[in-house]
Computed example of a mutant assay.
Amino acid sequence: MSHLSEVVLCEIFSYLSVRDLCACCCVCVRWAGVLYPSSHFWEERLSIETPDEFQEDPLIRNLVTAKDKLSAYQNSWSSVHHSDNIYIKPNKVTIHRNPVAQVSDIARGRRGCSSGQHYWTVVWHGPKFGSSAVVGLATHNVELKRNGYHPLLGMTGDSWGWDLSKDVLRHDGKEYEQYPREGAGVKVALKQAIGLIVDMDNRTLAFDVDGKYLGVAFRDLPEVELFPAISVVYGNTEVSLIYHGHPLAG
């Protein structure tokens, strides 16, 4: 494909996901130049593929490059895999949970991971955490809705969660331990950035809050595709999910 013009290459690349494009960067110097993060290619794709509400969201504007923003768009909430009491707002990165009584609801990400290291941030905008507000990982089989108020993420063997209301870890219907562990000096508040640090090579899930690392929460995760997810019970709750790619070293 060395004879193809940059215009033709950009047209071909426009059909690929960000993950596939990152792989293309490793093919040759010329492809890497076309796909360099600051290149016009990413700006054009961002303007074509994403709505204005997404581009104008403050959480997205904090991302540095158009490539980062497009990756965040492609790796935020699934438009299908959420309770019918939840809808995705026009910015595409924030879900809204309707005020429905005596029901627990889950929303999960559009794309999961089965290898490598990945980093998402979750921002719980409020109005409250309620009796249960859980953030973590789930398989594609996770139950999306259940009657009654439950910490639904972590109630079965196919989800792992940190209950922000109770400061405990949950999996397979059990409370595992206090988290953050004693001495961490962290109490999560609304509107803070809760980081999911997913290492599928070592099969661990860790968290940070506003960049402060809290340690590994779960080990020995299964070798299957896992998705970022939250469970919520409080009416009118809004939660944003932003993908950042590889976690920063340290």
Rank of each mutant, 00 (worst) to 15 (best):
V34H: 11
G215Y: 05
K128D: 11
L196I: 05
Q55G: 10
V168M: 11
W42H: 03
A206W: 04
L35N: 10
L153A: 12
A189S: 14
L144W: 07
S79A: 14
L21A: 10
R30S: 15
M155V: 01
S165M: 02
Y243Q: 03
H140W: 09
A133G: 14
K92N: 10
K212N: 09
G161C: 07
L16A: 15
H40A: 15
V93L: 15
D172M: 06
D208W: 01
K212F: 02
Y149P: 00
Y87H: 14
T204S: 02
V186G: 06
N62V: 01
D167Y: 08
S47K: 15
L59K: 01
R203W: 05
L190P: 02
S104Y: 04
Y87R: 14
L144F: 05
C113R: 10
P127W: 06
S104L: 09
L221K: 07
D105E: 14
A107V: 06
H40M: 07
S165R: 02
L169G: 01
R219I: 00
F129Y: 12
L70R: 04
E175P: 00
H171W: 11
Y234D: 09
K212S: 02
R108D: 01
L248E: 13
T121M: 03
S240A: 10
C25S: 13
S47Y: 09
G235S: 02
N202E: 14
D201G: 06
S231L: 01
G185T: 02
V8T: 14
V122C: 12
E6S: 15
D52Y: 09
V233T: 15
Y176G: 13
E49H: 13
K92L: 11
Y243H: 01
S114L: 12
S115M: 08
P90H: 08
T50W: 08
S2P: 02
L152M: 04
E44H: 13
M155R: 08
L164I: 10
N91L: 04
L221E: 04
N75I: 06
V209D: 07
G183W: 08
S47P: 00
E43M: 13
P58S: 12
D167N: 15
V142G: 01
I48S: 07
E225Q: 10
G245V: 11
L169Q: 05
D57G: 02
L70Y: 04
S231T: 03
H96R: 13
G185K: 06
V168E: 12
E238T: 15
F54L: 09
A66W: 02
